[in-house]
Design a protein around this nucleic acid. Structure first.
Lengths: 248, 248
DNA sequence: CGGTTACATTGATCTTTATCAAGGCAGGCC
DNA sequence: GGCCTGCCTTGATAAAGATCAATGTAACCG
């Protein structure tokens, strides 16, 4: 996937622009093709933000805190675009969950050149917003949810992003280990395991081997996830709070 | 701040473009001016993402989970641009910390029109990335940090964003209550209070009344925040992990 | 196909933070 | 300026999840 021209094809497919243009040539000049095998990690430029285009495979992006603690900040799958910050409060590293291929760009230079194409800027902006909204939901999970809710929500989220393989309906094949799930949910591996066992005992899910999980009852799983209830979540606000409801 | 023309001036100042253009006119047509008094909340269109331009004041953006739980996802101050998602897993509401004024836009329509200006798109993209990076750091704090670390990190972050008032150096006047701090850090009000007391007893900070905090020793506060240590945080990775260090 | 190894599960105990319950104090208002 | 209200602090107890430790098992490999 790192032969010359591959990057231009990928840019073209991602943004819906012709691949033969001067712009795609200029952009692909900035690319560093990287392959990451399962378990390998990639560190990007610590002095500036990078942009990653994952052409195939699956990766995790984790942040490192003091005392060797890791927090997985996002999982990415083939076709995803994501950004890696310069080293600030936490260092970020990309790790392969399976063998993966990606292109790395210096973010600033990429934006400088891409500014010429409204279509590219629009796509980048929308993907960035999606990442932000996902990250906010993660913050809610980490800050306010029980272990049960986090695990149930995680399974639902993965069911949306991973396509159910082969025959078995409602079955997802998790590409990450229990440790990864824990590091994503702010839980220990043991707690994740216990929660999965309990969901299994409740008949809501089932496991097939180590990495396959069958979701029997999506509704019940959603109920376990503790997300906002349809309409009445405003209770709990300060009583004096007024509400100005905007509908645009 | 909601007289006609105010929006165009704000757009012009924010993006560094002339205010008399057709584009600023078209964009300002989409604006809904809103004032939020202290403690009041604003809900945006639940069916589509909104874009908010905070012209003055200070607000919090919180997400609502089941059982009346609130997680503050971000604080915003005058000049900030931020986006509010359509109602997904969690509902989001804006609440005034002080009396505030903002313009609300339907995000999609705003992007459609702003696409004509690379400068606007670039600014929106960079602000979105900053918000994402902040949110990721928050996720690390919520998922992997102790109460002490979260409170120390919070004070440091606020010291950067709030400008130290009047005379007292290293003094910040928090515009939010202890409850808000707790809802931002995934802690109870009591735990926040205890941590502040302990930091005070350690001589690292001091309090002046209810909302002023004097930061005596930024270095020691940073040490308490448990962010990544300069160079050796890779220990703790799987031993087989290889590293491909990219420097661009 | 059986042995090996890393990953996952299960169990017992401990720690951190939430929860419950009083006080204390700051700041607003007459 | 003193009262009053709401916010903050402090203390005692409980619960959720972490940690420590051992066992089980899937998947890889010869």
């Amino acid at each position: 996937m790192s032969r010359p021209g591959a990057c231009r094809l990928f840019l073209s497919a991602t943004f819906g622009i012709p691949s033969g243009t001067e712009l795609t040539r200029q952009l692909s000049e900035l690319a560093t093709p990287v392959t990451v095998m399962r378990g390998e990690t990639v560190e990007t430029d610590p002095t500036a933000a990078s942009l990653a285009f994952l052409t195939g495979g699956a990766t995790k992006l984790s942040a490192l805190a003091a005392r060797g603690r890791h927090q997985i900040v996002a999982f990415h799958f083939g076709g995803d675009i994501f950004s890696i910050p310069a080293e600030g409060l936490h260092r970020h590293v990309i790790t392969g969950l399976r063998d993966s291929a990606l292109f790395l760009f210096p973010a600033r230079a990429f934006y400088d050149r891409a500014a010429a194409s409204p279509r590219i800027m629009r796509t980048l902006l929308e993907r960035s917003q999606t990442a932000l909204f996902r990250c906010r939901d993660k913050a809610v999970n980490l800050g306010r949810k029980t272990a049960r809710e986090r695990v149930a929500g995680f399974l639902l989220g993965m069911a949306e992003r991973l396509d159910c393989p082969d025959d078995e309906p409602g079955c997802i094949k998790l590409p990450m280990s229990r440790r990864d799930v824990g590091e994503s949910l702010g839980l220990t591996i043991e707690t994740v395991s216990r929660q999965i066992t309990e969901l299994k005992e409740a008949g809501i899910i089932d496991t097939r081997g180590r990495s396959c999980i069958v979701l029997h009852d999506l509704d019940q799983l959603a109920a376990q996830a503790g997300n906002v209830e349809p309409r009445d979540a405003m209770s709990g606000l300060a009583p004096a709070a007024q509400r100005v409801v905007m509908v645009q």
